[in-house]
Design a protein around this nucleic acid. Sequence first.
DNA 1: TAGTGGTCTAGACCACGGG
DNA 2: CCGTGGTCTAGACCACTAG
Lengths: 237, 237
Amino acid sequence: MTYMKKYQIVSDKITNYIKEKGLVQGDKIPKIDTLIEMYGVSKATIIQALSLLAQKGIVYKVQGSGIFVRRPSISGYISLTSNRGFGEVLDNENTKVLKFEEIELPEKERKLMRCDEKSLCYHVVRLHFYQDKPVVLESSYFLKEYIPFLSKDIAKGSIFKFIEEGLNTEIRFSDKYIEVKKLTAEQADLLQLEEGDPALEVNDVYYLAKGQIFNCSKLIYNYQNSKFFDQSPDELI
Amino acid sequence: MTYMKKYQIVSDKITNYIKEKGLVQGDKIPKIDTLIEMYGVSKATIIQALSLLAQKGIVYKVQGSGIFVRRPSISGYISLTSNRGFGEVLDNENTKVLKFEEIELPEKERKLMRCDEKSLCYHVVRLHFYQDKPVVLESSYFLKEYIPFLSKDIAKGSIFKFIEEGLNTEIRFSDKYIEVKKLTAEQADLLQLEEGDPALEVNDVYYLAKGQIFNCSKLIYNYQNSKFFDQSPDELI
DNA sequence: TAGTGGTCTAGACCACGGG
DNA sequence: CCGTGGTCTAGACCACTAG
């Protein structure tokens, strides 16, 4: 984030162009030669910018024909692949911290995070509300080795945002394991549902810029208050 | 698929290299200059090949340091983002065709597929088994406009494979809408579960090479026999 | 067969990591 | 400061679409 690459800038500009012109699914955007003139960069840079947009699901490219707008408007749905924890998923989110402790990483999480030794970590349990309805119950472990400081106060907001902006530590990618289960009595109570009701359980493992695992989380979603979407990227490249 | 691009070939070769050397999570692969010599292509082509692998979750790149192997071995999990319907998700799959009919596209699907007129389509209901256990109940609609021929016999195998190989029609991308619900009595019966049990419902919309919507599907997964994973790509580009 | 998107190259130069 | 990965350019040439 220290500087903006040219293709990122161009890709943002094209996104704005689409918004300003009010283009929708199936509309054609200007041809590459025109984009080269519009933004004063080389062809390779335009192609790179367009590839970025294709991966984000904003456009799709048809060789020999043109480049077209994709993204249908989706609201009320949580992106499954958005790589930033829960914090940025919904606006007006409200968080209640149920537990905040500093402990040794438990056995199960040691395996998941590939930690051999007994490492110190923060354990945070939170309940996230959206429009005053409980949406997700979260139990997260943060390794002190990589996240040296955390507080209950910080946990009331976005921990990931604090890590990236406050600790200036880049979060890079994640593995997600997804299952559907029945709620336990305790989970049901917190989510204002009944024991045995459906539960979407997502186990995340998050990695820093150099591939170090720093966090794992278990998220239990309220099946009544959460819908998800996922757009496959247009092409891999 | 008519010809292989150089960066695809190189990316396959690097994947094989990783397998042959038995490299695992965190292992370093040769530096770019070495890869250029190994495969006799330019730097840009190597970078493009590596970007492909990063998007697939096979490697991650650390600027100034090296390129490292990512993919942890995951078995028994279904990839949520694999863009090829159910056919290629699990091996040894077994499919029972419950319904095969040629009808006018129903109201609800017309909206989802953005079809204004009354279009003819194939409607297929199938139950997929894995290791003799019911895994997913599928209800799919295929527009005859784009998929002119389909048969009950073809539906016993992979319909997507038939479309791509038999009809020589390229499938490009998809939108997925995911919810968790309770099973209806009818669904429960077919999936050998109880009414009210948890159900993962995935609604897919699939697009052809030029952006035409040709298919929508509703998939109901058996919560006991299905686990999913999703790897966020390393960087968008 | 013209128009449009995509691949590939060589080389200059930039950014980040680590000793 | 060096090693390594990444960006960017100009231009040649290739592949697909559509009239």
